[in-house]
Amino acid sequence: MSPAVGAATLGARRSSRFVAWVRAWRAGLVPYDEIADEIAGDEEHLVADAPGAWTDLPLRDALPCFAKLAPDEIRLVLPAPGDPRGLPGPGAFTGAALLAGEAVVARGLGVIPEVRSHTSGSGVTFETVLWRVYPLPDELPGGGRTEPGPAEAEADLSAALAEATTALTRLDIAHWRPELAGALAALRRPDGGMDLPPGFDPRARRLFARASVLDQVLALAEHAAPGGAVNGYEAQQRDAALRPLTAACRRALVAACNAPLRP
């Protein structure tokens, strides 16, 4: 497996895991004791500004903030500049969510992960995650439900992936970024370890697995500098080819994590 493919299958966005597992808990499909570990994995997760708290709390101790909410009152949003769907109007939460590119929207609460990197005395780098809580109105415009359903999002993602693959092949991406080309090919074999909790139907699970891998691939393409053989025009063409795919990927993740739950 190439480094890019490996990076692409490390894990889903933190907000997507938060929403999926908290919704499953509120639906009575998974026990409370499992939620914090499923969200955090091997990271340390803390929560700042939780209602009624005067200091940062471990994630497990802050999850009762969601105990009175129904599953459909907890939603994933993945906003981008020019596409703030699912967010309330202008304010501190909306600005922070646009900057982070991800957030959790619930009745009366908004939560955004802030990732902090640390280096130990021995030179080992590790990350901690601080979930910052913002007060929100109980009712958001449109109910916070402006995303397509899983079926529509899956069709859109497939179409966008086909178009992007054609464009990237024409740009000969395999010549100057062979690892990215390999990662795109791996999307046809989604990582079975990237799964949703109980309650999500097979379509939502398939969509989440595929979109999660693709999300990491696109992050790699965005942040890694192109090779020296690529000029500015070619880089612009690559970005133009990936832009619709990036939007379709975000919509797919939102649709999968916000899909209706079943016993």
Rank of each mutant, 00 (worst) to 15 (best):
L242A: 08
C257T: 11
L157E: 01
R206A: 14
V230W: 15
A92F: 08
G143T: 05
L157K: 00
R116F: 09
S158H: 05
A24P: 02
D83C: 07
V104L: 15
G108I: 03
D215E: 13
G143R: 04
A12P: 07
F66L: 06
A92K: 12
L140R: 01
R251H: 03
M1S: 12
G95A: 12
R14P: 11
R17L: 09
H118W: 11
N258T: 03
F208E: 00
E73A: 11
D37R: 14
A70Y: 05
A224C: 10
Q237M: 15
E222N: 11
G142Y: 04
G11E: 08
G89T: 07
F66H: 06
R206G: 14
A240C: 13
R23D: 01
P148Y: 00
P202V: 01
S117R: 14
R243I: 14
P79W: 02
E163C: 03
R250I: 03
L161D: 00
D37Q: 13
L196Q: 02
F18R: 01
S212E: 03
E73M: 08
G28S: 08
D138A: 11
A252H: 02
D49W: 09
V77M: 02
L78P: 08
A40F: 04
P226S: 09
P202T: 02
P148V: 00
L59H: 05
V19D: 03
A50C: 09
A174I: 08
V254F: 08
A162N: 05
W131E: 02
P64M: 04
E127R: 04
L99V: 10
Y233M: 14
V217I: 12
P148W: 00
E127F: 04
E102N: 00
L63N: 00
P150F: 01
A247I: 14
W54G: 06
V19G: 03
A221I: 07
A247Q: 15
L214N: 07
P141Q: 07
P197Y: 01
Y134I: 06
A211L: 01
E152Y: 03
P260C: 11
R262S: 10
R60K: 14
N258C: 09
E38N: 03
E147D: 10
A40Q: 08
G11M: 06
L109F: 15
A153T: 01
R85P: 06
V217Q: 11
W131L: 04
D138P: 09
T55Q: 11
P178D: 09
A4C: 12
G11F: 11
A40D: 05
R262M: 09
R205W: 08
G82Q: 06
V217K: 08
A103R: 02
P263W: 13
A240F: 14
L10R: 07
L242F: 13
R23P: 00
S122M: 06
R75W: 06
A80C: 07
G82H: 07
Y134F: 12
I39P: 03
R14V: 13
G101E: 06
R17Y: 02
T165H: 07
A103W: 02
L46S: 10
A92R: 13
R17K: 06
R13Q: 11
H223E: 10
C257L: 04
L29M: 10
V104N: 10
A162T: 05
T166S: 15
P190S: 13
L59T: 05
G144P: 08
S2M: 06
D201R: 10
L171G: 03
L245S: 10
G11C: 07
A186Y: 04
S158T: 08
E102H: 00
G108T: 06
A70H: 06
A24E: 02
A224G: 04
L245H: 12
D83S: 12
